Simulated assay, not measured.
Amino acid sequence: MKRAIFTLAIGDNPMYKAAITSFEEYGKKVGADVIVSKELHYHLHVNNKKYDASPAWSEKLYIAELLKTYDRVLYLDADILVSPFAENIFEECPELDTVYMFNEGKYKDRSPHAQRINEVLGEAHWPEENGKMVYFNSGMILLSKETGLFDNASADEMQKICNEVKFYDQTYINYLIRRDKINCVSVDKRFNRMPLLGLEDYQSASFIHYAGRGYREKVPMRDLKFIIDYCEIFKDQLSEAQILDYKKQAWHWYMLKQQRKTKLPIPLLSAVFGLFHPQHKY
């Protein structure tokens, strides 16, 4: 059975580099090829800044193409870190006719998004568990050919909702599950450990998802925190030189972000921000 791990990573963000390296190590353990989209296959016109949406989110549709070659595909956002001790999700979640995702609706009310997509694309029934609507996070998706999840999906439908519905790609995938009556099971939190579950003990999960602000606490940027955690979790596999290089790259990425805001030279910004965050400057 052919397996793939798929992600989207456009640009030189060191967080992506670290994430993909963790995917590659995991792929060796579970017998899966790692496939990275570095350019978009679908081109949506996204212009509603209210939702801070990206045209890149449409790339999840490419999973349908991969399923023409692979029997099972594990999609992971590039802000997920796969731990070196991660369990084999392909074995933990074996049913081929079932989509496996994490139910974030248990913790966050996403019903307004469901209502809006129903208004745009037509009615679908959204079930509840314990009085809360089931709504899956799409940062991690495990599916097989047999699920049929993307059989009736289209970029045209995504275009209709991308400026109308919050988290348009995620909400669309949830909508497809409901409209097309796709079998779906919520995975344990260890396979999509999200910040909405709190900060305690998050590093013990198999798949650590740095969604939103991530686990940054006093760290000034999510990407910096990702690299700090990556270097700590993988310290036995990384040399001191590799760790230092990752941290330098992450600091430089942080400075590039500040430069875009201020238009000031990076050496000056690095000196100033280094005074406030000396423990994170390399």
Rank of each mutant, 00 (worst) to 15 (best):
G31F: 05
S186Y: 06
E24Y: 04
L8H: 09
V34L: 04
P220D: 14
E157D: 15
D33C: 09
Q249G: 02
I141E: 00
S54T: 15
V30E: 04
G31C: 05
G27T: 02
A4N: 12
S270L: 04
D151Y: 06
A205S: 13
M15K: 01
Q237V: 10
I10E: 12
Q259L: 07
I10M: 12
A9H: 03
F273T: 03
L40S: 14
K225F: 02
L61Q: 06
K49P: 02
P265G: 12
D201L: 07
M15S: 15
S138H: 02
T98L: 07
L143D: 04
V272F: 12
L143T: 15
R260H: 11
H45Y: 10
M101F: 09
D97S: 09
H125M: 09
E119I: 08
I233C: 11
Y135S: 10
R3V: 06
L199T: 14
A56R: 14
T262L: 13
I173G: 00
K132A: 13
G122D: 06
K247M: 12
Q170D: 06
K281E: 13
S270Y: 02
S144Y: 01
L149C: 08
F90H: 10
A211S: 15
D12M: 01
H43V: 08
V46A: 05
Y172N: 01
I243S: 09
P94Y: 04
